[in-house]
Design a protein around this nucleic acid. Sequence first.
RNA 1: AGGGAAUUAGCUCAGUUGGUAGAGCGCCACCCUUACAAGGUGGAUGUCGUCGGUUCGAAUCCGGCAUUCCCUACCA
Length: 891
Amino acid sequence: MSELSDRYSHAEVEDRIYKWWEESGHFKAEDRSTKPPFSIILPPPNVTGFLHMGHALDHTIQDVLVRWKRMSGFNTLWMPGTDHAGIATQSVVEKELRKEGTNRLEMGREKFLERVWDWKKQYGDRIYKQMRRLGDSVDWDREVFTLDDNVSKAVRKVFVSLYKKGQIYKGTRLVNWSPPLETAISDLEVEYKEQKGSLWHLDYPVEGTDAKLTVATTRPETMLGDTAVAVHPEDDRYKDFIGKNVILPLTGRKIPIIADEYVEREFGTGVVKITPAHDFNDYEIGKRHDLEFINLLNIDGTLNENAAQFRGLKTQEARKQVVKALEDEGALNKIEPYKNKVGYCSRSGAVVEPYLSEQWFMNVSEVAVPARHVVENGSTVFEPEQWTKTYLHWMNILEDWCISRQLWWGHRIPAWYCKSCQHVTVSETDPTECESCKSKELDQDSDVLDTWFSSALWPFSTMGWPQETETLKTFYPTNVLVTGHDIIFFWVARMMMMGLEFKEDVPFRKVYIHGLIRDSQGRKMSKSLGNSIDPVELIENYGADSLRFTLMSSLAAGRDIKFSQQRLEGYRNFMNKIWNATRFALGALKDFEVPAEGVNALPSKSNMSVADQWIVYKTQQIEEDVNRNLEQMNFQEAAQNVYSFVWHEFCDWYLEFVKPVVYGDASDDRKASQLVLAQTLNRIMRLLHPFIPFITEELYAKLPIKSEALIVEEFPTPEKDAQWLSLGSEEAAKEMEMVKDVISAIRNIKGENRIKPNIEIDVRLAPFDDTAQKILGSNKVEIMRLGRLKTCEIGEEGNLSKCAVTPVHSSGHQISVIVPLEGLVDIEEEIKRINKSMEKIQKDIGVLTKKLGNENFVKNAPEDLVAADKELLSSLKTQLSGLQESLNRLS
RNA sequence: AGGGAAUUAGCUCAGUUGGUAGAGCGCCACCCUUACAAGGUGGAUGUCGUCGGUUCGAAUCCGGCAUUCCCUACCA
């Protein structure tokens, strides 16, 4: 009777275990410790966000690392936090306000911010609850929010310092503008979508002639702001016009015809209208040629006074009316259908307008130099290495960073404008007077900083900077940053620049880049496609451990993952397997006397069975493999290592071997096997814990050999576990392999000949040498039980008439497995089976003969390889003749 | 257009320095063998995208081509 149910039920376990970990303080990092430090900063999720599959992957990787390091004796810090996510959060609250029939302008800044804080208090820990579901072992005592006082202090200090160095400045530039949000947005927040549009061809008359220049445009309404038309300097068609003017239709304005190599002669008509205030390329041309910049837009996206009779219209409406007016004036040459990509604001869904406005910028060219250098010289390495290129590519094409946003939710820019002398006071603390004229009449800049600005400081602002805290001393630089490749530039590069500038050291030693999670068809998960998978739902249905293990074993370095629910089910079954294996073991250990030495207790080697020594030997291999693969961040391989060890070695073979022993009578051998079983189980739980923490912690508590909490037990390594592993034996492992091979051969004969598994048969084993003879003899009972035999005779091949014969080649020994089939089966089936295996062997012999017949191979290939091939060839030939013989006897 | 990557079993993917192709899932057959049917045992399936080169030997190294994906920039 076992106290465990026959199915693992995660729902009863996970919440309870997590609470227990948290209350026991096992997640806490120590600012001072004799242990070596290991730190990871969690990429702060948006406070508006829900856990999505990307988080699940990102967090699982980090949690596996942190748990592994914690168990390996490190003082680990995994720092949690959330991001205020300026635009996203403000949008959410504004949407609520709209429903209530009001808006932020009516409320005023102060009231509005109170409202956002209320929202944050109510919903801001949603993501934290979900992180607990996933099992994240972060240090909750250190939870940080990007608008916390200390982070705000850090932000101000950085801003002021960069301003004083001249690296932050105010300027008028063209930026991506979201009209509904009335703010500048970053490139990241612009999504380009292909769209069917039109290409309007407009005729601009050349001043003083009858000639007309035809321009093509996708946005005809911007013609109101044209301040030039451009042609290629070497375009013979238009050479003579350069320097003349055209008369802009509708307005009658005279604008120059200029030459610029940016113009593609082959595209359209080869003449481009230039609207410097509403197009990024035109903006550059406008600067090069010193053109006039005519801004046509208000901040809400309607046309302004420069648009004359079109003033007040939205761009879409203006487009129609401008086209109509141009047609009336005879300036519309033709309309062509045309596909182009249009930028949309990812927050509001509106078309993004390039908009000329006064913004704050950060010049990054100077801080980029060391940030590039540290990656080039390997102070920080990317894993997989290929992302280094992407990073360096970005660092070479940097442009000044627009850091201001016309929002209210965020870090308000610490700049104050003097009402009397216009002087700008930039200060870490709120000034009471103008630093220039001492006037008390100051207005703070109404804008806030781009959310990425505070994110860029995250590795040190979360640790208490600008104070030189113990946390910083211990944990900065962090060991690894885990994130997706989509934000290498927006986040990774900027943290690097800020870390080097203000902490004079890299923020992380390693950057582990993972891919995105896609659906089973490889599509991006998105709300509009409706193919998003909710990880919380998966956790409810399959358990957090199953999800974690699926993610880890699907993880191909740096590549996107197609998520398969079938696979998840497979790993859910693995959890059940672990559960049941433990359930069995606990039953077998009912009367086990728990040794006082715990994990250090050793059986006498002389009492250990071959299987015992074999499983210890395999344990050594798995400890090596898992540690090495985790060290190299080969998560997929590490997961596969433990999976196949637990299922295909421990469960499939060891437990089967140990059954008769533990069910048998009390003896020293039985005690030894019980101890090996208990010790192996203990090590399995430790090895599995980083991947599947809940089920292992739950089961660990029920083991006979255990300590208080698995989460802080020692992760086994071949070095630390040397004493235990010394009980393993390579000899026993080889012996075990032979026994397994023989049993498999018997099962194969049964399976292929459709002999029901439960029919016990007679078998003759013919070893070719004394060692094999001895091994078979001492394992006869196991072979009979697991092969389900009635009798098992070990000796000569004897009479092969009407027998199935399978040659087994194992650990350098050869054995014939012989099963008399008379009366058991249709002999035809067996003939087919033998023919099939002869074909295979003949094919192999052919390959080898050809290879060894090649003089150059024998001459050039390594000796041991040639020798091995020769040996293989000869044994294949023996096997073939054996098969031929048994075939002859069958018919 | 530039940059990066991929192409291996029906599907998803491994395959570390070149030495006769692997896993999981799925599929087929048989089995409720007292831990587990979310299980057991056995089985089938691949000109490793294509063409050439280097080599005794190429899924692996080099080059061309094809297809697909991602990123960046977009021609108004």
